[in-house]
Design a protein around this nucleic acid. Structure first.
Lengths: 143, 143
DNA sequence: ATGATATTGCAAATGATTTGCAAAGACATA
DNA sequence: TATGTCTTTGCAAATCATTTGCAATATCAT
């Protein structure tokens, strides 16, 4: 599936219907950015498409992840977070106090592969995750 | 809390009682190694201490994490995984097929801090996680 | 050995996520 | 534009990991 296609095109080209609910979910993720929990996505989508159901949110997020349109993050806060797969590879910094998740462009992986012998581990890497937890500037002075 | 102390000592020195259940949990993690889910820990512990309860497992894992004795991993498989905090800092490679989790000594973080200006992000790092997902040698030929 | 207090086991609650099923919607085709 | 097929939705109930309240029990300082 071409990375140039937008989410709506990917859905249609994969034989899925472009329902109002799916449009709304994609639109919310596109316009509101940052990774959101299913809960947050429900609230945001409800603003434009009232009556949408949790199972619809979950079913579609799963579909969108499967199609590579959406990325699922495993942040250490007990929830799944979702965001549109950006064109650029990146990782995240997470504030331990307010929970804000921000993208960083820094990726340790290439460097890693260059300097070390991952193949010695007899392991074929497919993807990788890198997260830095800490305190963001807004929370720095809070106790 | 001195890192030289063993888990049992840390518990006692922190004012917690060294119950049979806690001994059994620590012993299992010490002897059986690899990160385990609460479920797996229950099974393993049940072998030596039958009748132990899920809530006991969870309550103690939480305590042990709080005391720094146990490390909690957020692997992208929907479960929490627990292991004894080793002396050495490390990260993990996870097989997408069999789910096996192995430690790697490679850490991208120091390099990262040296080469980039994390402080420009106005973020104070506390900890970080790095996981590589892929296919392990045992699963390489499975379809 | 005793007593104060932490800890356990049990059962029920919680909270995110999933599922079955009938009704509604999307879209290719006429 | 109307029709029919097949997907998708909404709802409600089910799951599944994890948490919690509480009475009974175990630990450990004394």
């Amino acid at each position: 599936m071409n990375i140039r296609m937008n989410p709506e095109e990917v859905l249609k080209n994969s034989g899925y219907k472009l329902t109002q609910q799916r449009r709304a979910i994609i639109e919310v993720l596109r316009n509101s950015g940052g990774p959101y929990t299913a809960n947050e996505i429900l609230s945001l989508v409800s603003d434009k498409y009232s009556g949408i159901n949790f199972s619809t949110i979950y079913r579609n997020l799963e579909l969108l992840v499967r199609l590579g349109i959406v990325e699922k993050l495993n942040i250490a806060d007990g929830y799944c977070h979702f965001k549109l797969t950006g064109e650029n590879h990146h990782h995240h910094i997470i504030c331990n106090k307010c929970g804000e998740i921000r993208e960083i462009d820094i990726c340790p992986f290439d460097e890693l592969l260059r300097n070390t012998k991952l193949e010695d581990l007899d392991f074929e890497p497919v993807e990788h995750k890198f997260e830095i937890y800490g305190i963001c500037s807004k929370c720095k002075d809070k106790k």
